[in-house]
Design a binder for these strands. Structure first.
Length: 505
RNA sequence: GCCCCCUUAGCUCAGUGGAUCAGAGCGGGUGCCUUCUAAGCACUAGGUCGCAGGUUCGAAUCCUGCAGGGGGCACCA
């Protein structure tokens, strides 16, 4: 028995909803699809006030919503306020979204911002869908990179050569200068602490400008206060641990095993990942966890999930969003961001250049799993070509007209909202709750941006073709109600994306 | 060699089983401001949806193979 019963009609000419079940049942029932459609449609007993049913070959049942029903929704939408579009998919399940989590050895690059925006909006979507969400930042505050970071600062303080694979950015000099000014002794461990503090402040500032903040900071070092030994014992009991060549290995079910603790005594990132994720599920009891990682970490997904399975945690509870690379296009020049190569544009620079709204909206106009090119010249333009302004302008126009018509006192003549533009606008905005729910189910933030763009188009067409404030008070009142519902819808959509919805532009 | 993502209009990208679905934005072309913001609207693009097979009543959408781009496959992070 096919599961999907009612879906959105793909073509507006076919109505609002479409049922293709007859086509799916035809084979198993050995009956003509149209005959099944006829039978099903009579059994559906759709209230006539809601919509009407039509059959279409080769076996579709189409449902078209009645204008009166659409019109009656406006007051409900306008009255729902911030609740409009929210759903209860999550049923208060606890879900953690972990994102950004870059090594604390340097300021954020623009490429980090993509994951930051995707993670933040994923969190917002899940919140709007009834999940109890925690935003977590994971801080790698131990390990080789941290030691190198401290040594690099020390080298700058003492005018020594920077160690091999060390950090050479300008900010390292700034940190060294500050340490010197405060009379801090040039010990690498002290200096790395100071450096992390400095970097974290910079990261928080950049993220704040992007309207992102986390609920919880998790220190990697906290995993090594007993939890590591406890987990190691458990894996040992499960027969998954082997000591070989001076290192500690995790025995996988596949060809090659994985090192957990290196010969030099340092843990691998894999080991930290295991401890960290076990902590999330077992110690802190999250029902689900969403991690936002760069695409270059793709290879770790499988082995982390395998380790979770070994520890008795169903792997499906962990969703890893792999965010693909970003390149930055300025004029004719394209810069590919690469962490390895150490080239890249800083987030701060881009925020200064194009502002948070454009950064957020542009990232959301691409699905996370597609590599993207960020067109700086387009994002920077304070004019019509810029998609951000298109959506914000739709909101500003409605806000303006609502102010302009605020004195209207009349019973809205809802039935007169019957032009193609008015009905189209109602149909688009009524999709909003489905968009939120589907974005939550798929964890695909970009769906919000594509919906917003469609909604903005419907708003602009309505505005162009239907004068709102006129001498005709009942019609004016009706159109103001429509404007109010539409303004609320696009405000909520922009709000879920963390993009501002200005009243004036 | 193996694994993951991508390959759709000049450019950047949506759409991942359904019926005029071959789309949007940008760029290019042409119209539209005496009335609530023209940061807008209306027309205008002929792209074998990388290629070849397969499954299906039906494939951009699923399967297989191949090609191209990117990312992984370390006792690196």
């Amino acid at each position: 028995m096919p599961a999907v019963l009612v879906e959105r009609a793909q073509n507006p000419a076919h109505g609002d909803y479409s049922v293709s079940l007859p086509l799916k049942l035809a084979k198993t029932l050995h009956r003509a699809p149209m005959a099944i459609a006829t039978e099903l449609s009579t059994a559906m007993a759709l209230p006539p006030s809601l919509g009407r049913i039509a059959l279409a070959p080769p076996g579709f049942i189409n449902i078209t919503l009645e204008p009166a029903w659409l019109q009656a929704q406006l007051a409900l939408i306008a009255g729902a306020g911030e609740q409009w579009g929210r759903n209860d998919l999550g049923g208060s399940q606890r879900v953690q979204v972990e994102f950004v989590s870059a090594n604390p050895t340097g300021p954020l690059l623009f490429s980090h911002a993509r994951g930051a925006v995707v993670g933040d909006v994923a969190a917002r979507i899940l919140e709007a869908s009834g999940f109890d969400v925690q935003r977590e930042y994971y801080l790698n505050d131990k390990g080789r990179q941290i030691r190198l970071f401290g040594e690099s600062i020390q080298a700058r303080m003492l005018n020594l050569p920077i160690p091999e694979d060390g950090y050479s950015g300008e900010y390292v000099g700034e940190i060294a200068a500050r340490a010197a000014a405060e009379g801090i002794s040039p010990e690498p461990s002290t200096l790395s602490e100071l450096g992390i503090e400095w970097v974290q402040r910079s990261v928080r500032e950049d993220l704040a400008r992007l309207r992102i903040s986390h609920d919880h900071l998790f220190l990697e070092s906290s995993l090594y206060a007993g939890w590591d030994q406890e987990t190691m014992r458990k894996l040992r009991d499960l027969g998954r641990i082997e000591e070989k060549d001076g290192a500690v290995w995790f025995k996988t079910s596949g060809e090659k095993d994985e090192v957990l603790i290196k010969r030099d005594g340092y843990p691998t990132y894999f080991w930290s990942d295991i401890l960290y994720h076990r902590d999330k599920f077992e110690k802190r009891g999250f029902n689900r966890v969403v991690d936002v990682w760069g695409a270059d970490h793709q290879g770790q997904v499988g082995r982390v999930k395998e380790a979770l399975a070994v520890l008795g945690i169903e792997p499906f509870r962990l969703t890893v969003l792999l965010v693909q690379l970003v390149s930055v296009k300025r004029g004719e020049e394209t810069v590919r961001m690469s962490r390895r190569a150490g080239v890249g544009v800083s987030l701060k620079e881009m925020l200064d250049d194009v502002g948070p709204d454009a950064v957020r909206y542009f990232f959301l106009l691409r699905s996370a799993d597609a590599q993207m090119e960020f067109d700086v010249d387009l994002a920077r333009r304070q004019s019509s070509e810029n998609p951000v302004y298109y959506a914000q302008y739709a909101h500003a126009r409605l806000a303006n007209v609502l102010t302009f018509g605020a004195g209207t006192r009349a019973e809205p003549a809802l039935a007169r909202l019957d032009s193609e533009w008015e009905l189209e606008l109602m149909r688009v905005m009524l999709r909003w709750p489905d968009v939120v729910r589907e974005a939550a189910e798929a964890i695909e933030p970009h769906r919000l941006a594509f919906f917003t763009d469609e909604l903005a188009a419907a708003i602009h067409r309505f505005y162009k073709n239907c004068r709102v404030v006129t001498d005709d008070a009942p019609l004016t009142a009706a159109r103001l109600l429509l404007s109010s519902a539409a303004r609320l819808t696009i405000a909520n959509a922009l709000g879920l994306m963390g993009v501002s919805a200005p009243d004036r532009m």
